[in-house]
């Protein structure tokens, strides 16, 4: 049985700080910049710096959503356009990786695979982008950004992770990459 020490009550202010506030996003505003604390440092004694993410309110045509996604969206498919938030890191993950390794070119294949693994993320002009289709509420939490922040964190720290070696994964990733390349996403 694990020894349990006192779990300290945390103040309201701190609790709000921990959860990066409830990030409010208005669909009436075309573009907003949100800030959340993040640690990009090369060493642990480097102070953590905020991550700024840009959230754009976009409407996507119905045809851009695949059949599987349409099923999960339920009644939303009845509309002609989908309300969506397009979230971007502004190129921060690349900047941080570049700061650590210099030339990021050798890391690009791994970056592409990470984007695939974290789902729904894409690369556009060095920026990591994700689209969120199913936000009925006017605010975003880390839940909604899960794959996005995972991708950013891993890419920004690729210099301390081993290269991919699994052949099955390599083959699967290659197929995806080729498809995305054809679509001009990479």
């Amino acid at each position: 049985m694990e020894e349990r020490r006192e779990i300290k009550a945390i103040s309201d202010k701190k609790l709000r700080e921990i959860i990066w506030e409830k990030i409010t996003v208005s669909k009436d505003v075309e573009e907003q910049v949100l800030t959340m604390p993040w640690h990009f440092g090369k060493e642990s004694d480097e102070k953590s710096e905020p991550l700024k993410i840009t959230v754009k309110h976009v409407k996507l045509p119905r045809k851009s959503v695949g059949p599987e996604r349409q099923r999960s969206l339920g009644s939303v498919v009845d509309t002609q356009q989908y309300e969506s938030f397009e979230i971007s890191d502004g190129g921060r993950a690349f900047i941080e990786l570049e700061r650590k390794v210099g030339d990021i070119t050798p890391y690009l294949p791994r970056i592409k695979r990470i984007l695939y693994k974290t789902g729904m993320n894409e690369l556009r002009g060095g920026r990591i982008i994700t689209k969120t289709y199913d936000l009925y509420s006017p605010w975003i939490t880390l839940h909604h950004l899960d794959g996005f922040v995972t991708a950013i964190t891993i890419i920004a720290n690729l210099d301390i992770l081993p290269p991919f070696t699994n052949s099955k994964w390599s083959s699967e990733a290659r197929d995806i990459e080729e498809k995305q390349l054809l679509e001009g996403n990479l």
Binding site: E17, I18, T153, N157, I160
Partner: peptide, 15 residues
């Protein structure tokens, strides 16, 4: 801050 500590631990867990 607790936020920074959570951020760091979360980052390490993700990696």
């Amino acid at each position: 801050s607790i936020a920074e500590a959570v951020t760091r631990l979360h980052g390490a867990m993700m990696l």
